[in-house]
Write a protein that binds this DNA or RNA. Structure first.
Lengths: 210, 210
DNA sequence: CAATTAACTGACTAAATGGTTAACAACAAT
DNA sequence: ATTGTTGTTAACCATTTAGTCAGTTAATTG
């Protein structure tokens, strides 16, 4: 039987290699798409021989699944949830800020997710059908209560959620376009705060909360 | 020398075949990505032999370029431009409506475009750098004048354009997700109008125009 | 009709690619 | 040391795929 130390060491090698591979894979899948990313290109980016990649992941599809899973975990965690107790203004502000920060900090995850949806969500149909639909319904109900209480303007809650999703994720997915148009090489913390302020301003005023 | 009639007929065959091929190709590129779409799969979808595809387009990249070009033409035409003479309210309304209708009528073009940008805009860098950047600057200046004249709230014009782009294109690019969440099979004219009304409502109020 | 051009296609080829295997190296446990 | 486990990798193979080509048919023209 293996000792605790050896387990840790073994685990470390596995974990380190897997992270290295998944990081390289994520980039390749974004740049080249699923079919365009080759095991060899992932190996090159990870600076490992191809066979070593296939030692840790049985095949290319498994790598992709692992990347996708990681993406969904982030989506769940980083989303910051919409909380009921502080009213619509704070809830929307917090939600927008969480989503914008996510987009700027992890654009690749957002891109992987976007490409997956654009191509028909082959691997994510169930996720949207069960988890996401439920989440949207719950939050929509919450917004509707605020509307009924006269705490915010009468806007369609579901489309409001879509609006916030799209506007925030745009800064990740269309990074390249935005940087080119703004004639910038990279985003800075300043930009992140400006976007948060802008979106909160428009959306809150749009919801009659300012 | 070929007669006018023969030119027309010849042109017809070429044009018809090319449209057939490009339509099939567009769908395949959306569903499978550039590398994933094979010349054979495009041929199958177009119901033509593979060699016939390569008779009309020298190679796969040429097909993709043709698809992309068509997409950009649509983008230019359908965008409806932001006109100065009727003030910010009408300008924004018209722009939103044009973009939303475009998204619902030609989701595949929007998807091709989105994937291209997400993957780093390899084929579109120049387009964004020259044409788009100029367009955004022009329109931003226009918004700024309205702001300076006190005709609308002081919101960042460039980010306002990004917001409208993202919110409208979202209905094309994330079609699958939205339909799944809304538990619907297809969009109807009713939906289009609801989205237009919703977005105009939020954005106009967000800009202090209601 | 004869000749020229355009449209079309089955069969083939060279290169790329996902995945296997078998042999080897590092290392821990006894 | 011996044994077993994990990690590592070059070499190899089967399949897929873009693109070519040689030859055929259809259309057009003079």
């Amino acid at each position: 039987m293996t000792s605790e130390i050896s387990e840790k060491k073994t685990g470390n090698i596995r974990a380190k290699s897997q992270i290295k591979i998944l990081t390289a894979a994520r980039t390749e899948f974004v740049l080249q798409g699923y079919k365009g990313a080759t095991v060899q290109s992932i190996a090159d980016r990870a600076e490992l021989p191809k066979a070593n990649i296939l030692y840790y992941f049985k095949n290319k599809e498994n790598i992709y699944h692992a990347v996708l899973e990681h993406t969904l975990e982030m989506w769940d965690e980083g989303i910051g949830d919409i909380e009921a107790d502080q009213g619509p203004k704070v809830a929307i502000e917090k939600f927008i800020e969480a989503k914008v920060r996510m987009s700027f900090n992890h654009p690749e995850s957002s891109k992987i997710y976007a490409m997956e949806i654009i191509q028909g969500a082959q691997h994510l149909k169930d996720y949207a059908r069960t988890y996401q639909r439920q989440w949207v319904r719950e939050k929509a109900k919450l917004f509707q209560q605020w509307i009924d209480n006269g705490e915010m303007a009468d806007v369609d809650p579901v489309h409001l959620i879509f609006l916030i999703w799209s506007a925030t994720q745009h800064y990740a997915d269309f990074e390249t376009q935005i940087l080119t148009i703004m004639n910038r090489a990279d985003f800075e913390e300043e930009d992140v705060e400006q976007v948060i302020a802008f979106l909160c301003d428009i959306v809150l005023r749009g919801c009659g909360l300012i």
